[in-house]
Design a protein around this nucleic acid. Structure first.
Length: 176
DNA sequence: GCAGTGATCATA
DNA sequence: ATGATCACTGCC
């Protein structure tokens, strides 16, 4: 009989109830856990990006509350998963208080480098959109080491947001 | 360098 | 209904 997760290791909604920038900086080094075909797959998060809210022109919420962005307004720890370029699913976690539309994009974990490859590798798609990051959804986060050194850089592919927002160092990469 | 791919959203 | 855009990837 295997435990799906050590309950005390699971990052609870309160972990995500902080500014997206703080959460994004805190996640590298922690574990992304996926329950797949009766097996636990746990990968160390290597790369994240913060999308700060309606004022952040790179954030989907900057273009208003729509059917797609609705889950961004949900409680912290909600999964926001959407398709981009018709091909790639993006895994995000809603951060900050309920009603405030901000999120953290998980860009890499384990050997999976790049958000599209991460989702594909862990069999993540729109079926998880709007679910809570918890064992019952089959995808959650655990403490792990954390607190290792993290490098902040500019976010990828957000030039459309203009120089002010594309210049912000809101991408966080685990230093090896 | 740039094509593929289709949901989403604004415009009408 | 139509067209532009896109938080990417893989191949040239």
């Amino acid at each position: 009989m295997t435990m799906r997760a050590n309950p005390s290791a699971i990052l609870p909604p309160t972990f995500f109830d902080r500014q997206a920038e703080i959460v994004a900086r805190d996640l590298p080094g922690r574990r992304l856990v996926r329950w797949l075909a009766g097996k636990r797959v746990a990968l160390t998060i290597t790369e994240t990006e913060a999308y700060l809210g309606p004022h952040d022109l790179a954030c989907h919420a900057a273009r208003g509350r729509t059917e797609r962005t609705e889950v961004l307004y949900g409680p912290p720890g909600t999964l926001y998963i959407y398709l981009v370029y018709g091909l790639h699913w993006m895994l995000n976690v809603v951060s900050g208080p309920a009603g405030y539309p901000a999120a953290v994009l998980i860009r890499g974990a384990g050997e999976l480098s790049g958000p599209g490859k991460l989702a594909r590798g862990l069999v993540i798609d729109g079926a998880l959109n709007g679910r809570c990051a918890a064992p019952q959804s089959g995808l959650w986060f655990e403490r792990g080491g954390g607190a290792q050194s993290v490098i902040a850089t500019r976010r990828v592919s957000v030039d459309y947001a203009g120089p002010r927002w594309s210049a912000r160092k809101l991408r966080f990469v685990l230093r090896k």
